[in-house]
Nucleic acid binder design. Structure first.
Lengths: 193, 193, 193, 193
DNA sequence: GCGTAAACGAGACGGTACGTCGGGTCTTTAA
DNA sequence: TTAAAGACCCGACGTACCGTCTCGTTTACGC
């Protein structure tokens, strides 16, 4: 990290990379994901189309990279020693990360998984399982402490959490907020215990 | 229904309507929703494009109509007098209706809600709230009987159910099955009571 | 001719066809053949690119069709009974037909024969041999009358005529004019007899 | 020549120059001039694009340089004291120089004159008039000896010769050969005298 | 029955975006 | 300073579909 092996030739332009991500986000805000086209991104970013295709294989991968940057600070599952506070912290953080454009970004990316099966695999591998693993880790620790009933499947609990979360982002009128984080935490704790 | 007011002129071809729906379903099965285009539907259905545009305004509305036909038998919420059996029947039915292509149809339609805000409203009004209302009705009856704790929000319960359901359809590797119906019923009952 | 066999479907737009030819000619006049692109033609003609590709396979074929329209009035070799007057009439007509844009059109088409071997065959078959045949016919009649020496190859004479003509159009500063028509007629008559 | 003024820094690579010319010729032979691109030349020559742009301003100039190398041995008009033998020697040499790729090289260069008016001027100044001048010189000497009729324009004679020559190279199926050289010599002598 | 009128299949139309190729320029490291 | 390498911005390519618009044809109904 930092020290990329570099041979001859002009190096990749970090400026272009960020202009592409920023343009994509602005387009989603303005016109929705349906109005995001590679040509529009290129035009707004002041970048050639070829530069985009050199580094991303579709508009969905751009959106995914933007989403990943928004989630990059949430790399570590919380560990306070108690299930309840771990769960509350995790859900508050996650829901906070889904504010504003990020909700639309997630919607866009999930939409694309329905249009392109190859991208669906990428999304699951690169984003979804990473998020699920954090919750899994946290629950596993709690189970070791006896805070999760043995009869409950952790994967099912995780499905419930991410299911409701995605549902709110995709189909509900209102974005998930702090109140919702607590409501969901309550539900999870009740199902666990 | 049945007695449409009809003036002069050739009447709508039921044969064409069904050919369009069937072609759409076959295309989704073969190429995924990304490969569904109006031109491909028209070609495969042996129908003119104009005929499609005369009766539907987008590929998403065709998919939605196909989905509605699949769900048309589930118009009535079960009423057995007990929350548990109502819930189990409802979820078994719903999950059964989401087998095969219907899962992909739902995925396609949800994807489109992310691309087209106008269609999102149509989908919510014409499909989603209809399904939610059945569950709501069922839960309300249970609440009147004291089977649902007053502190629990019915809408939240409904979000949980449809959230997990959609999540499985959209993002999980495996379709929801009978086992999953029982697991989800258990969870709902625990959250209610 | 006139009665084209027509099946179902919207018929070809003659308006679009002429707009394309006219736009191509205007672009050649303005920017030279190097500035003629399919996109520029489509834009200036107010026509979709697909419409162009439906009827022509390259910009060169458009130029060729425009050239053919300019030469469509010269379908018949002159026959006055004397070689001299036949030759003079033929060359005056031909050179007159090469005035203005038509010279540039011919240059463009010949340039393309050097870039695209398939088009070279089309050009020879559809345009060049047609023009050569007229001169050939005229010379053959003269030979029957004894006005062309038996030792002279008609094909060589034709090469000389079209060679000089093309050379003037392609590489000389000045277009061929009436004076040049007489000069070339003189030379041809001298070589023939 | 030979002693170029050279400042500091790495000198121009003669190896690169020849690799570029050779690659261009091979590409013309393989794919025709239409397949000659700067990128293809650079790749095949194992040379950076910038190196090409540093020394040539377009693919046409590369082709022109290759053509000039092929004609570099024909710098002097023949002078045998007789028009006939001068003409025959000149045309044999010229036609010999147009064998193989060189014919395609000439076609390529002439094609480019139709696409790029600036290059047309360069081609005329740097190549065409040089060749014409040799023939002009030869004819002028003959005229001084009384072997060319005063009524004949030398420029017209030269147009005829180069016209037919180019025509054969550009548009005829067969390259000009030795027999053609004699046929053209005969015609020129007849027109002169 | 016979004209009117709407829906039908076919397919061309003006467009937008696609993903690719190549142009000519710029920025690295190596010689 | 030149060279190879390769990323940069840009313009055009030829294709796929969009949604609309004629065509000729088919099928009901109302006079």
């Amino acid at each position: 990290m930092g020290l990329e092996a570099r041979g001859p030739g002009r190096p990749r332009s970090e400026r272009a990379r960020q202009a592409v991500l920023a343009a994509t986000i602005r387009l989603i805000e303005t016109d929705g994901y349906g109005g995001v086209t590679i040509e529009a991104i290129a035009a707004r970013a002041g970048v050639g189309k070829q530069t985009i295709y050199r580094w991303w294989s579709s508009r969905a991968e751009i959106a995914l990279e933007a989403l990943e940057e928004a989630f990059s600070s949430l790399e570590q599952a919380p560990d306070s020693g108690s299930l309840e506070s771990d769960v509350r912290v995790f859900l508050r953080r996650t829901i906070a990360a889904l504010g504003g454009v990020n909700a639309e970004l997630l919607g866009a990316v999930i939409a694309e998984t329905q249009l392109d099966r190859a991208f669906a695999r990428i999304f699951r591998a690169r984003f979804l399982t990473r998020q699920r693993m954090q919750l899994h880790e946290l629950l596993e620790r709690a189970r070791a402490r006896g805070e999760v009933m043995p009869s409950v499947s952790l994967d099912f609990l995780i499905d419930v959490v991410f299911g409701v979360l995605c549902y709110r982002v995709l189909l509900a009128a209102a974005e998930p907020d702090r109140r919702f984080a607590e409501e969901l935490s309550d539900a999870l704790l009740r199902l666990a215990g």
